[in-house]
Design a protein around this nucleic acid. Sequence first.
DNA 1: GTCGTCCACGCAAAAATCTTGCGCTTCGGC
DNA 2: GCCGAAGCGCAAGATTTTTGCGTGGACGAC
Lengths: 150, 150
Amino acid sequence: MDDLDRRLLDQLQRDAGQTLHELGELVGLSASAVQRRITRYRASGLLTREIAVLDAAKLGGMLFVVLVALERESHEHHRRFAERMRGTPEVQQCYELAGRWDYLVVLSTSDMARCRELGDELFQRDDNVQRYETMPVFDAVKTGLAVSLS
Amino acid sequence: MDDLDRRLLDQLQRDAGQTLHELGELVGLSASAVQRRITRYRASGLLTREIAVLDAAKLGGMLFVVLVALERESHEHHRRFAERMRGTPEVQQCYELAGRWDYLVVLSTSDMARCRELGDELFQRDDNVQRYETMPVFDAVKTGLAVSLS
DNA sequence: GTCGTCCACGCAAAAATCTTGCGCTTCGGC
DNA sequence: GCCGAAGCGCAAGATTTTTGCGTGGACGAC
C-alpha cells in the first residue's frame, strides 16, 4: 500500500467510471498497471464492489434517520437485529454504535406513510427495542461512502 | 420510468460493475437497449456517478456518527455549516434533519485522535453549534446508498 | 380503419476498452 | 555479484461498449 495505491483508491472512491487510461494519467501509471492494482484490491477484498449513485430527490423519495436503543444487549439479540436490517431493502445503512444509542439506521422510503409502517415493523413490534427516535431528512448535504485514506 | 427502469436502476445500485449484456439478461433487454437507458439516466441527472466501495475495516479506519444542534437557524448559518461539511474530506455524509437534532454527520478518520481534532475544528470552535454528540461506530452492519424504487 | 410519426427495440459492425503475455528494470537476500 | 520476486510499459488479443440501421408497436389525426 504505497502512495500510488492511496491516490488510485481515492480516485476510485470519487469516480469509478473512468477508463483505466484516465485513471493512469491521474496517478501516473499505465492502464495495465492500474488494472493490475485494481485486480489486487478486488482479490484482497479491499475493493468490495462498484455501485451507481442515484439522485434520491429526483426519484421523489424520502430519507429518515432512526436512532435505536435496545433493551437487552446479548450477542444473540444484536445478531438478530442486524440480520433484520440487512434483510430489509429500505434500510439503506445501519451502524452499531457506542454511546447513548445502540444503532443508527438510515431508511429510504417513497413517503412518510411507508416510513411509519417500517418503523412499526422494524422497531415498535420488536420488544427488544427499548426506544427509538425517527428524524426525517430535510436535505442530503453530502453523501458518499468514501473512506479517509490519510 | 417503467418497470424495466426500476429493475435496471435497482440492479445498478447494487452492482454497477456488470457488463451491459449481463444487466440485459437480468432485466430482459439487449445490451444496446440497456446502454441507451443508462445514457438517459445519466443525461437526466438521475444517475449521478459510479463509485468504488472500499472496506473501511480493512484499511484500519474508524467511523463516527455525530449529531449536531445549531444555536441559530438562519438560512445563512445553515449554508455556512453545509459548506464546511462539503469541504471536509473526512466528512463522509451529512444530512440536515427535522427533529431534536439539526444535522447528522458521519466522519471517516484514521483513528480516535483525528476524530477529536475534527470535532474540535468543525463543531467545538463553531460558536453557532449549540451542542453535539459523537458516537463511535462499532460495526458497519449495512452500508450503501441504494434508494428505494418502490 | 389507416396512415404517418415517434419511440424503443434487436442485431451487427465499428470503436473503445480491458486483459494478458512478454521482456525489462528495480530491489532485497544471500 | 547473482538470483528471484515484484512491478512496470508496451502491444497484441479478447471483450465490451457504442452506433447505424431496419423493424414493429403505440398513438393521434384524418
